[in-house]
Amino acid sequence: MEPQIDEMDRRILSVLQRAGRISNADLAERVHLSASACHRRVQRLEKEGFLREYVALLNARQMGFPTMAFVEISLAGQADELLEAFEREVALVPEVLECHLMAGTADYILKVVARDTDDFARVHRQKLARLPGVQGMQSSFALRTVFKTTALPV
Rank of each mutant, 00 (worst) to 15 (best):
R18G: 15
T149I: 06
V96K: 02
V154P: 00
A56W: 04
T145N: 05
M137L: 13
I5T: 09
R115Q: 14
I22M: 03
R61W: 05
Q138M: 15
T105Y: 04
A69K: 01
I22Q: 01
G20W: 00
R122K: 08
G136C: 13
I73P: 00
F70A: 03
M1H: 05
V93D: 05
T117C: 05
R144D: 10
M63R: 07
G136M: 11
M1V: 10
I73S: 01
F65V: 11
V55T: 12
G133Q: 11
R125A: 15
P153D: 13
R21K: 10
C99Q: 11
D116S: 06
S14M: 09
Q138K: 15
T150F: 06
G104Q: 02
K47M: 08
A35T: 07
T117Y: 03
V112H: 01
A114S: 14
E2V: 12
G133C: 04
H100D: 07
P66A: 09
A76V: 12
R125C: 05
A129N: 08
A103N: 00
A60E: 08
L128V: 09
L110E: 01
R115W: 04
R18A: 11
A69L: 01
I22F: 01
K111E: 10
H124W: 09
C38H: 05
L58W: 02
E72W: 06
G49I: 02
I73L: 01
A151V: 13
E84M: 08
L27W: 01
Y54W: 09
E53G: 08
D119A: 11
N24C: 12
T145R: 10
A91D: 13
V112L: 03
Y54T: 12
L33Y: 14
E7L: 14
F147T: 15
T67M: 08
L33G: 12
G49N: 00
S14F: 09
A37N: 13
L58A: 05
R88V: 06
V42Q: 07
E48K: 11
F86W: 12
I109C: 05
A60F: 05
R44E: 08
R144Y: 14
A28W: 02
S36N: 12
A151I: 10
V146M: 07
D26Y: 01
S139Q: 04
Q43T: 08
P94F: 00
C38L: 09
D6F: 01
I5C: 08
V134I: 13
V31R: 05
L57R: 06
V31Y: 07
E72N: 15
A129Q: 15
L110C: 06
D119R: 06
A28K: 03
F65A: 02
V42W: 02
H39L: 15
R130G: 05
R122V: 11
A85P: 05
R11L: 08
P94D: 11
A25Q: 10
V146F: 14
T145K: 10
